[in-house]
Design a protein around this nucleic acid. Structure first.
Lengths: 359, 359
DNA sequence: AAGGGGATAGAAATCGTTATCTACTCTGCA
DNA sequence: TGCAGAGTAGATAACGATTTCTATCCCCTT
């Protein structure tokens, strides 16, 4: 099909190794005019290196495997993008495989990737298994990005949930809140527990008592945030602010407060966590701690590449900070987006209520 | 590093070609016990085929390139998932490259993919260029998924915007609406124009006059939907329903109607387009025509594989239907999600307004 | 003048696999 | 009995690159 180095060699009258040395960017000494002849010929023939052949010889494919449960999951695309950007900078590519939380798929996915072969593996939003068990006898470096379950392990990059939660509390306290409710995620999730611990830590630091009546548990879904918020509001000393451990529950909490006839943020301030897409466009826009998704991907790819290249040793769990996105749900003024109220409401209303016949 | 066919050959005392014929699943006649010996040895040695070597020899890499502008774009992940699922079923993988709307990146991305090499190419949400120009002299099959600009071309898979818009209008008419406003996307977008045409076509079919005063133009963003809706409402005979050409503008329109002191859907029904994630969780949940993103990806990958395998000829533009997601913004009852109002509002309110001292 | 060594290029082997060609053993039929 | 042809396996040559080893040439030192 394509033009090979052999063709370039023939065209220039030079030998194959010489052409290879020029075209593969080796640092072997090559006469300047030879180098130019080769480059000119390669260019004019439209030569493209065959990475499969190169990889066969060099045992380096410049490819890493990326194992995700589902590319459609909310955090996965930005994590993947972070990974890809770092990889692309090193002329690597990432091969993404979806395993759908299915251990069988996962096994075959790893086998397929090792077959390809890849130089390393990245597990995104993963995993229940220990890394050794996953790889079998294959000696490939691997990293875990945003691992959701289990105890901290080496070669993993995670959000700093503890510190981030502390910062959420700090912010609420700085706004004057002293009764802060917590809507926690399910206690079997590591991230939920860590966020709670950050909440407790900062509460203590600010001298706020931790009242169990001000803690409710949800399941990450909107409905559970709604119910949890109702529960928190329905206490003797209801919170003036609620920290929901994710944005979906924060949205549910907002609906609950509104349905209670109260205002967010005037009566109850609400802060979410994750900075999901919708947080910026719902009303009120949700103040939230962003997940450092892109950055986690970038860092993980960076560390993985280091281990692929220089055999640098495994590193301890790396924690990345999020960014507090301050928005309306805890009192920031509406942005220019589209929240400004119209001036001619009454005119419009009159027109609409006084409808004309069709067409 | 790994176990090769050579090792399996040695272990079994058989020759390399024989081992290859067993392990590569060729249909060459092999004695049953030979086959078993090879398979047993391969299994126990932990043999993994090296796809790079195989690809080198067979000139088929079982890999296709997927060129996207940004994996983080809203529609891209589900399209990619559709592609990947179809590819995985054929033991293919897809290599995703982001080109960020940058023609230079795009050129090098294509070159890199051809270098790998890949068996075919998929362009997602793309492109300004003609396919011939993109590929140069490389003779690889390629498909366009959800191509956004330009006239229809062969080997492309797109949403059936015309028919889908007709169906939106049909639904609004079936709900009794006769004055339907349109918030169009920018006229230089092919999809915007096609959606408008569907709107006109169905309007005509239902005997609704097309009043230019009931058409406003936005730029796909929320703010423009807000402004456009205000504009539509502020006419002599304001619409009782508004069809926004995407969900962001629909959300803006909802805010505008609400800010006008009116109710969605009681005073004005609103339908969006795209079925973005937030459409189901905002209040009111947005009725919307879904983009058949996953399906487009699946179909495109399917057709691409057919062309890779059987050299089946190029096909005409394929149009995929969306699904109308009927929700609250055009009058459907709220789901069980979390829209039910609480019973004990007054108690809650009293408690909150009558706040206790801190802690 | 001899020889050491840097600069440069080529020959041949190699990576792991598949494809082509050859060769041998049977079986069945004329 | 002889032979065509199916069944089965091996030898060898690719695929497109890189790597190692070898061979020049020529300059410079002693």
């Amino acid at each position: 099909m394509g033009v090979t180095m052999q063709d370039v060699a023939r065209a220039t009258g030079l030998s194959l190794p010489t052409v290879s040395r020029v075209l593969s960017g080796s640092n072997y000494p090559i006469a300047a005019d030879t180098r130019q002849r080769v480059q000119a010929a390669a260019e004019s023939l439209g030569y493209r290196p065959n990475l499969a052949a190169r990889g066969l010889r060099t045992k380096r494919t410049s490819t890493v495997g990326i194992i995700v449960d589902d590319i459609m999951s909310a955090f996965v695309p930005p994590i993947v993008r972070g990974i890809q950007d770092r990889l692309a900078a090193a002329d690597y590519s990432g091969l993404i495989v979806n395993v759908d939380w299915n251990p069988d798929l996962e096994r075959t996915a790893i086998a397929d990737l090792l077959s390809r072969p890849v130089d390393g593996l990245l597990f995104v939003e993963y995993s229940h298994r220990a890394p050794d068990e996953l790889l079998g006898n294959a000696e490939k470096p691997c990293f875990f990005v945003h691992r959701l379950f289990g105890t901290p392990i080496r070669n993993s990059v995670v959000p700093d949930d503890f510190r981030c939660s502390e910062r959420v509390v700090d912010h609420l306290v700085s706004l004057g809140h002293r009764r802060i409710g917590l809507i926690s995620g399910p206690a079997n999730w590591h991230s939920a527990r860590t966020r709670n611990e950050g909440f407790f830590s900062a509460s203590n630091r600010h001298g706020l008592a931790i009242d169990p009546a001000r803690i409710a548990y949800g399941d990450w879904e909107t409905k559970s945030g709604y119910d949890a918020a109702l529960h928190l509001l329905n206490t003797a000393a209801p919170p003036t602010a609620i920290f929901a451990a994710n944005d979906l529950m924060a949205l549910g909490a907002i609906y609950a407060v509104q349905d209670a006839g109260l205002s967010v943020p005037n009566d109850v301030a609400i802060v979410g966590y994750d900075n999901r897409d919708f947080a910026a466009i719902v009303r009120p826009a949700i103040t939230t701690m962003s997940m450092p998704v892109y950055e986690m991907g970038r860092v993980a790819a960076d560390l993985l590449l280091a281990q692929i290249d220089e055999r640098s040793p495994a590193v301890d769990e790396v924690r990345i900070q999020g960014e507090l996105m301050i928005r309306e749900s805890c009192g920031a003024p509406p942005t220019a987006r589209c929240t400004e109220r119209t001036e001619s409401v009454t005119t419009l209303r009159r027109l609409l209520l006084n409808r004309e016949p069709d067409n």
